[in-house]
Computed example of a mutant assay.
Amino acid sequence: MITVRTATPADAAELVRLRALMFEAMSGAAAPGEWEATAETVLRERLAAPPQELTMPAFVVDDPGRPGRLAACAVGTLEQRLPAPGHPDGLFGFVFNICTDPGHRRRGYARACTAALLEWFDARRATRIDLHATEGAEPLYRDLGFHEHSIPLSRTKLLRQ
C-alpha cells in the first residue's frame, strides 16, 4: 500500500530536488542556480499556510529506505479567477511538478500523489485543472481524466540568471 501525505514546509528542499530531477527528465539537464533557493523559500512559505488558505498544495510519498527523503511528489496551485458559466466559483488548478525519484519509478507513486492532488482540487470545487505533460507521462494523465484543451496563445519570456 502506498502512503501519500500532505507536504510540509520541512519538505521544501526535497521538493526542489525532485523538481530539478523533473527538469532533467524533460530536457536532459537542470541548470542549478538561484531558482533553487527561491523555489525552496516559496515552498516553505506557501506550505506553511493554514489549510483554509493553502493555494499551493503538495502531496508526497516518503522514501521508505531513507528518512527525510522523498520518493515522489505532485505539486499544484489553486488560482482564483472571475467566475463564469461552467466555472461558478472561478477556481482553476494547475499541476506543475510531478516527479518520482529514479530509484522509485514504476511503483505507482506519481499516480498516488497526483490522485491526492486531484482530490484536493475537487474538494475545493476547481472546475478546470491544467498541466503540461511529457510524452512518457501522457498515459498516466489521460488515465486520470486529462485531455487536450485549446489554449490558443501563450506568452513566455525566459529570464536568465
Score class of each variant (00 low, 15 high):
residue 1 M to H: 14
residue 2 I to K: 12
residue 3 T to G: 11
residue 4 V to K: 00
residue 4 V to Q: 01
residue 6 T to N: 08
residue 6 T to D: 11
residue 11 D to Q: 07
residue 14 E to Q: 15
residue 15 L to G: 00
residue 19 R to A: 05
residue 19 R to I: 00
residue 24 E to D: 02
residue 25 A to P: 04
residue 28 G to E: 12
residue 30 A to M: 03
residue 30 A to C: 13
residue 34 E to A: 02
residue 44 R to S: 09
residue 44 R to E: 05
residue 44 R to F: 00
residue 48 A to C: 04
residue 49 A to W: 01
residue 51 P to R: 06
residue 52 Q to T: 14
residue 54 L to C: 10
residue 56 M to N: 15
residue 61 V to I: 13
residue 69 R to V: 13
residue 73 C to W: 13
residue 75 V to I: 14
residue 75 V to W: 12
residue 77 T to M: 15
residue 81 R to T: 08
residue 83 P to C: 03
residue 84 A to F: 15
residue 85 P to R: 06
residue 87 H to T: 13
residue 89 D to K: 15
residue 90 G to Y: 02
residue 92 F to V: 14
residue 94 F to N: 11
residue 95 V to R: 06
residue 101 D to E: 15
residue 103 G to C: 07
residue 114 T to L: 03
residue 118 L to G: 02
residue 119 E to Y: 02
residue 124 R to D: 07
residue 125 R to Y: 05
residue 128 R to G: 11
residue 131 L to G: 12
residue 131 L to S: 11
residue 132 H to Y: 13
residue 133 A to W: 12
residue 136 G to L: 09
residue 138 E to W: 11
residue 142 R to N: 05
residue 144 L to Q: 08
residue 146 F to R: 09
residue 146 F to N: 03
residue 147 H to Q: 07
residue 152 P to V: 06
residue 155 R to T: 13
residue 158 L to V: 10
residue 161 Q to H: 15
